[in-house]
């Protein structure tokens, strides 16, 4: 039993690279999207605001798996756009989806910084950009940390869906293993869970740390 478990683990580890590389890249891109979209929703320009609101609500309001199929099967046929390898399609779908959620974290954190902070910035004659850069964002960032930690764990779990567009990630190897060793199915899936959990551990630790920083960061 123990030996079989180890066997399965070493078999699954072939998918580790794909899972982790997609997770890291998608997380990095979704952070960028979160900031760009989150700040755009606070823009004075109604077009920018409207466009980002449209993006955010579409991607929050539909399921990741459907978005994944759209990008993989529909978009290339409809618009003749090639998004590159299916690895990139997976990364882009996950990043767009979670970027939409996380942009709301950015927006609400920025909005929740006390109005008096902006007023003090105006009274000191700081420009709009300087107020954002020197006063609002450093405080908002602390509020974002715990939520960002949570979302990074969700992104990791979300990457499991890319096995459905033929990417050879952790879950993909789990499936393959089960289909060739049917009797060991439960154990195989248990090991898949264990692997995801092990990758998630540092993220859990990081988000706990983020919570602590957030707690002591802001007060008036």
């Amino acid at each position: 039993m123990f030996d079989t478990g180890l066997n399965i683990l070493s078999y699954l580890s072939q998918g580790l690279g794909t899972t982790i590389s997609i997770f890291l890249t998608a997380t990095a891109i979704s952070f960028v999207i979160a900031f760009v979209a989150g700040l755009s929703r606070l823009s004075g320009n109604i077009l920018i605001r409207g466009f980002t609101a449209f993006y955010v609500e579409i991607f929050r309001g539909t399921s990741l798996i459907v978005q994944l199929f759209w990008l993989y099967y529909a978009v290339p046929m409809l618009f003749d756009i090639n998004l590159g390898s299916n690895w990139w399609v997976g990364v882009i779908a996950v990043a767009l989806n979670y970027g939409a959620y996380m942009s709301e974290v950015v927006r609400t954190s920025v909005v929740s910084v006390d109005k008096g902070q902006t007023e003090a910035g105006i009274a000191l004659n700081l420009s709009r950009f300087q107020r954002m850069r020197e006063i609002i964002l450093p405080q908002a960032l602390r509020l974002m940390l715990p939520e960002f930690g949570n979302y990074s764990i969700q992104i990791l779990k979300g990457t499991a869906l890319v096995s459905l567009i033929g990417l050879t990630d952790l879950l993909y190897y789990g499936d393959i293993y089960r289909s060739t060793n049917l009797s060991e199915g439960p154990l195989a899936y248990l090991m898949v869970l264990v692997m995801y959990f092990i990758i998630a551990l540092p993220l859990i630790w990081l988000s706990k740390k983020g919570e602590k920083i957030a707690k002591k960061g802001v007060a008036s």
Partner: peptide, 24 residues
């Protein structure tokens, strides 16, 4: 516009009821 406001208000300072210091 913002730039004009900045130019005119550069000689004005204000102290607030709730201090509004930058906590970070």
């Amino acid at each position: 516009k913002e730039k004009h406001l900045a130019e005119v208000r550069k000689d004005i300072g204000m102290v607030f009821q709730h201090f509004n210091l930058f906590p970070h």
